[in-house]
Design a protein around this nucleic acid. Structure first.
Lengths: 129, 129
DNA sequence: ATATGTGCAAACTGTTTGCACACGA
DNA sequence: TCGTGTGCAAACAGTTTGCACATAT
């Protein structure tokens, strides 16, 4: 937990200080303001580790970029097909209709991806251990 | 609607005949069994059009591939981090807990992406028209 | 010293695109 | 013939990775 390098710390800070769900490139530009000679590879490596450890969220909306979210608590994302923005939204029942009513967002399709381990893989892992 | 080329028809057939949420490459291999000299570019072009027209669903789970789903009705997807499979699941309230109980799938993170047009972009479009 | 992290740049790979040709209306 | 779709291959771009060096324990 305290194995944070200066670079990783800066990356986390950048992520925690925004809610635009930035791409790796955006994070890279921001971090360079603090650590000018950080490399893009380092940003990618840390983002990868952080998302795998569950500290941040990795989001693919299909625009060719991987987006990252410093808020890893469960919530919904509203992705606008026009401007590309990704906005947060509370996760609740009957969410589609609620989103339209409360925020003016007009949903047409939604993709709810649940990450985890399926029953079979979980069983296999228990066999091994 | 009837502007379907032989290639597009074959692509749709492949998508409708499976529930594994295949990648473009997988679709390509399948379609080649029917149209051996179809090009990968054609597959990509058609998949792109079909998903933009809403006939199929495009799903990014963050494994580096774009996945496609012939079933465009709203439903949830269970993506296993281990084997990479994407399984369908009914969309219902309190889905996370239900998924764990009903299918043995152990969720750790979920991403519910709602596609659509945000209030601002919708307003802008109305201005133009 | 030992393991881990970094900077740099080349390499990788899924996807896109330009172009000439084919096909249907 | 005119518009749209295709095959082919080159190009693109986001991401990954090998390697030598730096850093912390």
């Amino acid at each position: 937990m305290k194995n944070y390098s200066r670079q990783r710390e800066a990356i986390i800070n950048v992520l925690r200080s925004t809610d635009i769900h930035p791409t790796a490139g955006w994070v890279y530009e921001r971090v360079r303001e603090v650590i000018p000679n950080i490399s893009l590879g380092t940003v990618y490596r840390n983002l990868d580790q952080l998302s795998k450890s569950g500290e941040i969220l990795s989001i693919s909306v299909g625009d060719g970029y991987e987006h990252f979210d410093g808020n890893s608590s469960p919530h919904a994302h509203l992705h606008c097909r026009k401007c590309g923005r990704i906005a947060d939204a509370p996760l609740k029942n009957d969410f589609l209709a609620a989103a339209a009513l409360e925020s003016g967002f007009i949903p047409d399709t939604s993709v709810y991806i649940v990450y985890g381990v399926c029953a079979e893989c979980n069983a296999k892992e228990k066999e091994i251990n």
